[in-house]
Simulated scan of single mutants.
Amino acid sequence: MSGRWQPEQRIPVEHELMLQYRCSRMTVNKVLTQLAREGIIERRRKVGSFVKRPHSTSAVLSIADIKAEVEALKQPYRFEILARQKRRATRADRTLMGTEESMSVLELICRHFAGNLPFCDEHRLINLHAVPTVASVDFADISPGAWLLRQVPWAVAEHRIRASGAAADVAARLKVKAGSPCLVVERTTRSMSAVPITFVRLSYPGTLHELVASFKAI
Rank of each mutant, 00 (worst) to 15 (best):
L35G: 07
A166G: 10
R45S: 10
T57S: 12
Q9M: 13
V185G: 01
Y77D: 13
E107Q: 12
G179L: 13
V13P: 02
E101P: 00
A213T: 09
P144W: 06
R25E: 15
T99C: 09
T90M: 07
R78H: 13
A68Y: 01
S104I: 01
C120N: 09
K30T: 14
R162A: 10
A130R: 02
E14R: 15
R4F: 10
Q85E: 15
G165K: 08
P118E: 09
A140G: 12
I218R: 12
Q34A: 12
S164G: 05
V185L: 14
S164E: 15
A130F: 00
C182H: 08
S180D: 08
G145W: 01
Q85N: 12
A59E: 11
A166E: 09
P196D: 04
T198K: 00
N29A: 14
V105L: 11
E122M: 09
H112S: 05
Q151T: 14
V60S: 05
V195K: 02
A146V: 05
V200Y: 04
S56C: 10
A178K: 13
R190M: 03
A36P: 08
A72P: 03
L183G: 06
D141P: 00
R43D: 04
R10M: 15
C120H: 02
S104L: 02
T90K: 11
V200C: 11
L148Q: 04
Y77V: 08
S203M: 15
E107A: 14
T133Q: 15
G179Y: 10
F50E: 06
T90Y: 08
S24N: 11
L117S: 13
V137W: 00
V131I: 10
R78V: 06
R190C: 03
S136A: 13
V170I: 15
L148M: 08
R111W: 02
I11P: 03
Q34F: 06
C120I: 03
A83T: 04
T95V: 12
C182K: 03
A166R: 08
A83S: 11
V176A: 07
L149C: 07
F199L: 09
D169S: 10
S203R: 14
P196Q: 03
V212A: 15
R4C: 10
L106D: 11
I66G: 00
I142L: 08
S143Q: 05
I126Q: 07
E101W: 01
T198F: 02
R187Y: 06
R22A: 04
L211I: 13
C110Y: 01
G165A: 11
P76T: 14
E38P: 02
